[in-house]
Nucleic acid binder design. Structure first.
Lengths: 355, 355
DNA sequence: TGCGAAAATGAACGCGTGTACATCATGGGA
DNA sequence: TCCCATGATGTACACGCGTTCATTTTCGCA
């Protein structure tokens, strides 16, 4: 029983016997409208199958109703296809949908200049969530320009110390601290750190937590125990030869890998060399991705509330939902930290130091 | 050196000493514009930092420039966070970006009615890619209505036989066939199928391929060898008790799981019962996700070109890029099938039948 | 040099909505 | 009963662009 073509506000107004302005008020729930009129209009709209043009609404309101999500993208290595981003995206989408916003997904090419500002000036997005941002001079400048132009955005899991950018992150220093404490608790005394690039603040945070735990335990922070990866499984495997030797020689008895992918790469590399995490060394990863449950032995890890990070990021940008408490959406702390949780599994639990 | 506020076309026109229409033509690359004029306008636009309002453009053109991507979403089980969807999304995003389109990501709640049509009528999207669609009466009807209203969409990895919907899928029948053939080639004669729900056409396709391979080998298709899962790891683990018994009793010597997650769940469940795929039974999964390389033994699988599926889906909706061959974007076959590829690993390769 | 056709440009308008302002109806208090 | 405040509705216009059509300019050719 649908009419052909597009139904305009004008036709609804005619059928309902009111003016277009009244139709507009009813559709938007604007204040002064008599209940009887309201019903008349709604019925007419229903009968005709009228749906306001989102395009015209956006134009008139000067708001797109879109929240942009910037995702890092490297053509060959599809970084995007990771647990990490998927979970955050779900969270953002959930929060955005509740507020009537749509999610515009955009890939950030590392090659071309990042013209974030253009997104706002063309009005394609009203606000942005930045994922996988790196602490580089170029990025800092681009973000500073955004902030200066008063374009709302929030960084997830990336902090720019000294720059007043809104951030929602997990408490990665605490995560690094607890992971290291856990290994210490298992009896480890020579704990290696397989970290990611320090352009990510979360890498630096984990390092800080790691050092703090060692210091508290009265252990030296040997720079020789820090290995550099890039968060890929391959880079974890690449660290295996050196670490295998260190373990065999008793120079390392525990390893904290800064994410699960590297931990798993390392696990596989060690096994190829006859060393089994959980027996010959204690190993703990980070992120508590699905993969942590797939390995043999299962991988200890630090759970990061990715979904919640996405929800919070969107909430901060869009304000809380109508029925939510309106308390802290104004301007909470600039940098918000969500707690992480250690998840102990066999890769560290079954290890007992030889000494 | 940026101007304050928004710069309008009018100001560019004034600075360049031309009319607004000419500015519009230059910005859109419309045909009759003298080169000198063109440069003048571009220079003026550059100086003022003029950027056309995407909102106004969309409104005037009656096109949003957005390609919608419908993703299934179940609040608790975040189906979305899988290799599968991430890869396809990357592909769609890549193709869309090349054509100047943006990606609008939308979650389909299984609870609320699927009002796809509204997306088009509000002009939020110009076209849609449907992921994880199910062959149910409600879905069929919703899609039929879209097709009737001439709203462009493409299904990925889901075919509605008998309905004239555009589809881009992998050749899952061939995949099921080759997976089964591979197990046969390893000497298996009693091959079980751990399949997913048949509301997904790809489940049905794999079943067909499985049966064809068995028939070609002169083996009966024993319905008792078909186990029902739901593509989750849990459901794979749930099949472990029954399959372990069947394997122990010699009633099963090979298992084809319809995706990697179930295969891995099964692998873990079997190991808990003292049975090791690769030694006591041959196992092959499907999708060739990253996880297939994480297990011990590593999991044989069938690689699906998820990224390419996404690219093709977007290409069919948006037409080929300017420099691409314009041949087949008009109306290729309605259902397009991309080839899959078998990837043999230890879970099937190291198995040798006892008899 | 002149002329006509084609190319280049300008003027004007429509797109469908939100909204400020004007107008009208309603109702309570004197 | 009258008046005014208030609530309800209608009128008119702006939003910034694309685009049609009229107008002007350019240029090839006689």
């Amino acid at each position: 029983m649908q009419e052909e073509g597009l139904i305009l506000r004008k036709e609804v107004a005619k059928l309902a016997g009111v003016s277009e302005a009244t139709v507009s008020r009813v559709m938007n729930g604007a204040r002064p409208v008599r209940e009887a009129t309201r019903r008349k209009v709604l019925e007419a709209a229903e009968r005709l199958g009228y749906v306001p043009s989102a395009l015209a609404q956006q134009f008139a309101r000067k708001r797109s109703g879109n929240i942009g999500v910037i995702v890092p993208y490297v053509p060959k290595v599809r970084l995007f296809s990771t647990y990490y981003f998927s979970e955050i995206l779900s969270g953002i989408g959930e929060a955005a949908q509740q507020r009537g916003y749509d999610m515009l997904l955009m890939f950030r090419s590392p090659y071309e200049a990042r013209d974030y500002e253009r997104l706002y000036r063309t009005r394609k997005v009203d606000a942005c969530v930045m994922l996988g941002s790196q602490d580089t001079p170029g990025e800092l400048e681009a973000l500073a320009r955004l902030a200066e132009a008063d374009h709302p955005f929030v960084l997830v899991n990336q902090r720019f110390d000294g720059a007043p950018f809104g951030t929602v992150e997990a408490d990665h220093e605490q995560g690094g601290y607890e992971a290291t404490r856990h290994l210490l608790g298992r009896g480890c005394r020579r704990i290696a750190l397989l970290n990611g690039p320090l352009v990510y603040s979360n890498s630096a945070d984990r390092l800080t937590g790691y050092r703090r735990a060692l210091a508290e335990a009265g252990l030296p922070a040997d720079p020789g125990l820090c290995y550099a990866g890039n968060y890929s499984r391959t880079s974890g495997a690449a660290a295996a030869p050196a670490l295998a030797e260190a373990i065999a020689q008793g120079r390392v008895d525990g390893v904290f890998a800064a994410n699960d992918r590297m931990a798993i790469g390392l696990l596989q590399g060690l096994r190829e060399r006859g060393l089994l995490p959980g027996a010959d060394v204690a190993l703990i990863g980070y992120d508590d991705s699905e993969a942590a449950r797939l390995t043999e032995p299962q991988l200890s890890s630090v759970a990061v509330p990715f979904h919640a990070l996405g929800v919070r990021a969107a909430q901060r940008l869009l304000g809380r939902t109508a029925d939510g408490s309106p308390a802290d959406d104004a301007s909470p702390v600039l940098v918000e930290k969500l707690p992480v949780q250690l998840v102990a599994r066999a890769s560290s639990l079954t290890y007992t130091p030889s000494v």
